[in-house]
Amino acid sequence: MIGYLNLILRLAIWFLLTANLSVANIIIGVSIALLLPGRPKTPGALKDWLRALGEVIVAIVQAYVEALEIIIRPHNHEDVVMERVKPQRTPGLIFLDIFLITFTPKTIVLKYHEDGWYEVHRVRRRND
């Protein structure tokens, strides 16, 4: 059986594509959402997604702080570092990690290495 979040996502995509909330379309959408094959569920996936949601909130605040820092004190030194991917990340969580790193003004992911590393470009002040 597919997870509730996956079912809701599939139905939301179906209703956005069809733009029709008739009874027949709802039945067709639920049938298709249940019949489409799903990935095997991982037991800690929901906990990881909730933790990732908290990281998104922190990243939004961090983005504003970093933008103000760049405006007030120019950052003229840059480097490329390798950061380790957190263990046992699903492809969706890896995408979210890359998005969060790139969302902040001082960092951007240049490349994701399949062996579990992000190549990250960052700007900083010389004395940081």
Rank of each mutant, 00 (worst) to 15 (best):
A45G: 02
R39D: 12
K47A: 09
V56M: 14
E55C: 05
I26K: 02
L34M: 14
W49L: 11
T18A: 14
P37G: 07
L16V: 08
G38Y: 03
L53K: 01
L46Q: 06
T42L: 10
K41V: 08
I26F: 13
L21Y: 03
E55H: 04
V30N: 09
L46P: 01
K41D: 11
L11I: 00
I28D: 08
G29I: 00
L35I: 06
V23Q: 10
P40H: 08
I27R: 14
L11N: 00
A45Y: 05
L17R: 15
W14I: 06
V58L: 02
I27Q: 11
I57Y: 02
S22E: 15
L53D: 05
L35E: 00
L46N: 07
V23F: 09
I26R: 05
I32L: 15
L53E: 06
A19K: 15
A19L: 14
L35T: 01
V58W: 07
I28R: 03
A24H: 09
S31D: 04
I32Y: 09
P40W: 10
A24Q: 12
P43M: 02
L17V: 01
P37E: 07
L34F: 11
W49F: 11
I57E: 07
P43L: 00
W14H: 15
P37V: 09
G29S: 02
R39P: 04
S31R: 05
T18C: 12
W49C: 05
L17H: 12
A19P: 00
I13N: 10
T42H: 09
L21K: 00
L16D: 00
S22V: 11
S31H: 03
T18H: 15
D48L: 01
K41H: 07
T42N: 05
V23K: 04
L16A: 12
G54A: 10
S31V: 03
L46R: 03
S22Y: 12
P43Y: 08
E55Q: 13
S31L: 14
L34D: 00
N25S: 15
I27V: 13
I57W: 15
P43C: 00
I28M: 05
V30T: 13
F15E: 03
L46H: 05
L34K: 13
I26W: 01
K41S: 06
T42A: 05
L50C: 10
A12D: 06
W49K: 05
A19M: 14
I32M: 11
G38Q: 10
I13S: 07
L21T: 01
W14G: 02
N25K: 12
N25D: 15
L17D: 13
K47G: 02
G38D: 12
G54K: 08
G38C: 09
V56D: 12
